[in-house]
């Protein structure tokens, strides 16, 4: 079937299988930031935005994005950079494999919530698992990033 959608602001028309996942489609489109982690919609690694909302691309049928706007980390690199630098300074990336999904959910959170505190951030990001860091460094980085946003 033919799928028409916008990827990071660019209109695309592609042939897809009806049971193709958004994850497969995006990787085929060269979006290397989109990675699989668990296959059961539990880990958050494959997070992308559909119409601005974070979703799990491993469980999202590609067919469903017909006419919608899909955003991956490649499409919000500039917006992500400050947060990435905060994470790097804390050493909060470690293996880095879960980072793009985490960044996509965190950026969505900062767009959605005015001034989230630690508990609110933990709740919003609970679906992003990380096995390396123990999360504390990520939370420190988020707090510093949020502080930087406030002082702007």
């Amino acid at each position: 079937m033919t799928l028409n959608f916008a990827l990071n602001g660019r209109k695309l028309s592609r042939e897809i299988a009806p049971d193709e996942t958004l994850l497969q489609l995006l990787r085929d489109c060269g979006m290397h930031s989109v990675r699989s982690g668990c296959d059961t919609s539990n880990c958050g690694i494959c997070t992308v935005w559909v119409d601005g909302k974070p979703v799990l691309s491993c469980g999202y049928l590609a067919a469903r994005v017909e006419g919608r706007a899909v955003t991956t980390l490649e499409g919000v690199k500039d917006e992500a950079e400050a947060l990435m630098r905060c994470l790097a300074a804390e050493g909060a990336d470690q293996c880095g494999y879960c980072s793009p999904g985490f960044l996509m959910c965190a950026l969505a959170m900062f767009r959605e919530l005015e001034n989230p505190g630690d508990a609110e951030m933990r709740a919003y990001l609970a679906g992003n698992l990380c096995r390396c860091t123990g999360y504390a460094s990520q939370m420190r980085a988020l707090a510093k990033y949020a502080e930087g946003r406030r002082s702007k």
Binding site: M31, H32, S33, V34, R35, T72, L73, E74, K77, A80, M84, R85, L87, A88, A89, G91, D93, Q94, C95, G96, Y97, S99, P100, L103
Partner: peptide, 21 residues
């Protein structure tokens, strides 16, 4: 001292650097 990892920005930014990429 504290130093950021030398590969931090590429692995976080989605650069094609893992086996599957």
């Amino acid at each position: 001292q504290a130093r950021a990892k030398t590969d931090a920005l590429s692995i976080m930014g989605g650069a094609p650097v893992y086996t599957g990429d």
